[in-house]
Design a protein around this nucleic acid. Structure first.
Length: 288
DNA sequence: CACTTGACCTGTCCGC
DNA sequence: TGCGGACAGGTCAAGT
């Protein structure tokens, strides 16, 4: 579920609530959510840094080592102290604001000061695992990630090279490919393609020079705006941008099927591209 | 190698 | 109301 803007929002929320704390106890409620044992490498360590790479959260530990968290579709991270929720981010559900743990709780990290970090995950796709310092660079998932879309490394020429490399794939599939660029998921792929006026089903190699330029710019604009907005939120979503509306009110495509295109008023259509539900404006985004 | 499809899970919604 | 099927903000393995 969470894409780059949501994970970045979570990173900021965790930085504000758990950075610097020591892990006192680990509860593996659903061990399958773990890749290998974590207790030995976590207990007694301080969280000395919280970073993000694509959709992956990286917690840096004192005395070496890192804890990696991928929330996949339905993961959430909730920070609680004395029964009060200090931060909740990730897949939005009503229960994420209720008592912890709940039936979706998979891993519990008890921290100093009575603060507790809950890793919840309804569909059990998310994973939490530990690597040592050497293992961080060698981690197979991390190592294959493409450039950060908001960093300078995501150049136009690199993006065009990837469009050529995946010439026959629909351009949306290329955007979702984390080795091409890290952090785009189903929402922001649709958002970016709509802003760039490119149909998601177009073969990647068929994009004109102007279209590929527009698409790269649209990705950066969309993600930057979404980060600024605290990610895409639902009504009961709680995040670091609490009190703000979130990106949803500015959505161009996400959940807008059947509604008028924000640009031309044409009714937005739901189609299937690269095996994923996809929303397009049939007028602004011409079919392949 | 490029690309597509299905599996992994649980919950919800929709049509009959 | 009850049930089956489709689908969901992601990734990987196995298939063509």
């Amino acid at each position: 579920m969470p894409e780059l803007p949501e994970v970045e929002t979570i990173r900021r929320g965790l930085t504000a609530t758990v950075l610097g704390r020591r892990v006192e106890r680990v509860g593996a409620v659903w061990p399958a959510s773990l890749r290998g044992p974590i207790e030995g490498g976590l207990v007694g360590r301080h969280l000395i840094g919280i970073r993000r790479r694509g959709k992956l959260l990286v917690g840096d530990l004192s005395d070496g080592g890192h804890v990696l968290v991928h929330l996949m579709m339905t993961g959430q991270l909730v920070v609680v102290e004395d029964g009060r929720i200090l931060f909740a981010g990730g897949h939005p559900t009503r229960s994420m604001l209720g008592p912890m743990p709940n039936r979706t709780t998979r891993v519990i990290l008890e921290l100093t000061g009575g603060r507790v970090l809950y890793f919840n995950d309804q569909r059990k796709f998310g994973r939490l695992w530990l690597v040592d310092d050497a293992g961080l660079a060698a981690d197979p998932f991390l190592a294959r990630l493409g450039p950060e879309p908001l960093e300078p490394a995501f150049t136009l020429s690199a993006f065009r090279a990837q469009l050529r490399r995946h010439a026959r794939a629909p351009v949306k599939a290329v955007l979702l490919n984390q080795t091409v660029v890290a952090g785009i998921g189903n929402i922001y792929a649709d958002e970016s393609l709509h802003l760039a006026r490119v149909h998601p089903g177009r073969k990647a190699a068929s994009l004109s020079s102007a279209e590929s330029r527009r698409l790269r710019a649209a990705i950066r604009t969309t993600l930057a705006l979404a980060v600024e907005s605290g990610g895409t939120s639902f009504a009961e979503y709680v995040n670091a941008a609490r009190g703000r509306q979130g990106y949803l009110t500015q959505a161009r495509a996400f959940r807008r099927e059947g509604l008028p295109c924000v640009v031309c008023g044409t009714t937005m259509k739901r189609i299937r591209v690269a095996g994923r539900g996809t929303t397009v404006c049939p007028r602004c985004q011409r079919s392949p």
